[in-house]
Amino acid sequence: MGTVSILDGLKRKLVADSVASGRRADGRALDEMRELVVETGVVPKAEGSARVRLGRTEVVTGVKVNPDRPFPDTGDRGTFICTAEIPPLAHPDAEAGPPSEAVIELARVVDRGIRESHMLDMSQLVIKRDVSVVGVFTDNAVMDDGGNLFDACSYASVAAILSCKLPVWEMAEDAPRLVEGQRRDPPITTVPVSVTMGRIGNHIVVDPSLEEWMCLDARLTITTNSEGNICALQKGGREGFTPEQLNSCAETAISVGARVRPKLEAARRAG
């Protein structure tokens, strides 16, 4: 991500050798995620929130819900905006200031996975057609960059949205007015799960740690929905994948995604 630090040569060799042996430097199998811990309700002032720990990576995400003006061509739908930030406390190389292209890519990949899965039924987020809609802002803040921010931010965003309690507005003289004391669950249609895989040599690893991340030849993020269909992709890194590798990555993303989904769905009950 924002990381330009150098990995020492011995560690680099260790990562490559252990991946080739089928057991990774931290003891995981190639298709094994790190421990995933999802907490919701961590920022009570936000309508929804989550802290996700994926190995050493930690992300805190909040959802704010406000009345918004619809886009001119989609007056019958609410708005959704997803941002990501790597504040400078998250990594020695992260810098304050305008987001780097890597951080913008991170935000857009997380946004795309949620948007394209149609996780939120945006048609149910309309206060008055063409005049006022519900805007859902999902802001991700990385606290500790331990590698694979794509999945950590995606899980935190999805859990925060699932845990959301939406305020209710009604129109009063052409302006939305908050209906006190009313809250509703968000209109969820599916639970998207992103799975990021990295290629090191001819081997594919799921959920690369920071050390592995610094050794990746190429990476691929695949987001699947609750039906096990693929709804968003992002290939990155300086090299490519073979079509065979892409097929096997899709299978991995579907099966790993199915294991992760219940952990995120628990946020709905907890929220």
Binding site: V43, K45, A46, G62, K64, N66, T83, A96, D139, A141
Partner: peptide, 16 residues
């Protein structure tokens, strides 16, 4: 020193 508020840290979403 950098003191920075997350957009969701306050009632009305704050610009980043």
């Amino acid at each position: 020193v950098r003191y920075h508020m997350q957009p969701y840290s306050v009632t009305e979403r704050k610009r980043p």
